[in-house]
Nucleic acid binder design. Structure first.
Lengths: 283, 283
DNA sequence: CTAAAATATGTAGTAAAATTACAAAACATT
DNA sequence: AATGTTTTGTAATTTTACTACATATTTTAG
């Protein structure tokens, strides 16, 4: 399953898979996204010179539940941000300019992911984790810290968790993966071959593999549930990897969603772990 | 005539003009914007414990044509970041609502810190680090991961770095601190006494102590250079610690500023560490 | 080139959702 | 307490989204 950032990208991508009448609909939607979002099924069908069922079939082919969802997705796409343009840090920047740019970059990438939240398989990930025997968070290098952080967060829900930061470790974990285990692979580019190998192995053994990585990576193709975060190449040596931040916050969001899904039990675990730290001096 | 940028702002503003039943609707919509946008009239009416016409009258009072338009306006509002002033996650939030709130919280706290960048002692920190013999990043628990991440980032500038996540470790490091060492303490509340102790000891031995922590903590009072990040108390068990994100990005900013200050040499080191990872398959 | 199969499209009907009309209830005012 | 006003819900109506099925079109195989 491939997930797209925005409706309209997906539309262009899938254009060839549509039938003649459906392509007319696709074209009209592409050229009048806002109008489509506010119009009724009958109006759209008429404007495309086709019938209502064809428009509905067109929606279904996009993986949507129907015309109503198309409206929602189009409205989202139309109000996507894209306004905050991140400028690269220059060697002649003042310290506060550079710092502001670093913050802007992080804020921007968070906003981007936020705007595509509805297209991300958070539900599916939560569904798998809800019934998991254990969670294994895997990450190398900078992503390793994200994996560790996630481990530290999720275990507080009362689920056995592990974090793995090394190659042999992840292969060993994959080798003994069981049906109800959920692996979460975190990687900026997803290009280290060993990540793909470990993911495949874990899946073969029946585990669910969640991947937070670039869409076009080998890791992505080996995942059961994919969170596609585009890996923007560093044009400048000074540019820090702001992908870590989005990975981190995305995992925050998943953890909160999981906590909600687990309900009372999780809430109590969270409370207890917080209380365990509460006997500190107030200063 | 008052023009509103977003539905939700208008909603809060007009709250007093609503009748009792309408206020129930307004409240529900404010706390579940995303859910409302995707739900049907009947569902919303039911969730608010009122009838369908009341919901429609509520829409009309907002100047909308009906429930259909409310859906569209809410979807817009929910996809435009920053529109939702962060509200706490409720136990009955949908996954989408909860995820958006988590992102909003992080985005908001980043924007807050961004707006006070000019008041932060980044120059001073960079000045000290520029001539440092070594950098020691200290953090316990969740902040430990931030410390590790920072260590992993700064060492690429060619400066000897260490990360410390345990109590004895930090005391030992402090005990052998030297004049040209820079310690960076990361802590959400800064209330663990051992952090203050270690910081004081390190300073006594002539090291520079940078602290990223709450202004009113014991750690803060023992620091030579303070980055005050307010520790907002968690009102809700589900609220994740978004302070980690600001700590992380702040350290990113400091690292970039330091790289710029070091100039050529640092740039070359960064380049080399990137090249060391570049012989990966392209898939 | 034709017959059969598969696919695409539209018509007409159905279910569901939004909206309206109107009456009952709650509230305020004298 | 009676009257007028506002608020709210019930039930009917209209509109909208969706489905089942029949017809047309294209594709494929002999």
């Amino acid at each position: 399953m491939v997930y797209f950032y925005y409706m309209l990208d997906q539309l262009e991508q899938q254009m060839s898979t549509f039938s003649r009448a459906e392509q007319r609909v696709a074209n009209w939607v592409l050229t009048h996204p806002r109008q489509t979002a506010e119009a009724t099924l009958a109006v759209v069908a008429n404007a495309c010179g086709t019938s209502e069922p064809t428009v509905i079939r067109f929606c279904r082919r996009l993986g949507l539940s129907g015309f109503r969802e198309l409206s929602i997705r189009l409205t989202e796409a139309a109000s996507k941000p894209g306004s905050v343009i991140h400028r690269a840090v220059n060697a002649d920047d003042t310290i506060s300019d550079a710092a502001a740019k670093v913050f802007d970059a992080s804020i921007q990438s968070l906003m981007e992911v936020r705007s595509m939240l509805s297209t991300l398989p958070i539900d599916q990930a939560v569904g798998a984790m809800k019934m998991a025997r254990s969670l294994v968070f895997v990450g190398l290098g900078a992503s390793g810290h994200v994996a560790n952080d996630a481990c530290h967060k999720f275990f507080r829900l009362g689920i056995p968790c592990a974090a793995v930061n090394d190659t042999p470790g992840m292969l060993q974990h994959a080798a003994i993966a069981a049906h109800k285990d959920v692996f979460v692979f975190v990687s900026h580019t997803g290009r280290w071959p060993v990540l793909g190998d470990a993911a495949r192995k874990a899946r073969q053994r029946g585990a669910t593999v969640v991947a937070i990585t670039d869409e076009s990576s080998t890791l992505a193709t080996n995942a059961s549930i994919l969170f596609p975060l585009q890996a923007t190449e560093d044009t400048c040596v000074f540019t820090p990897m702001s992908s870590r931040v989005t990975q981190l916050v995305l995992l925050d969001a998943i953890q909160v969603a999981l906590a909600l899904a687990l309900g009372e039990v999780a809430a109590e675990h969270l409370q207890r772990t917080k209380l365990a730290l509460s006997d500190l001096p107030s200063g």
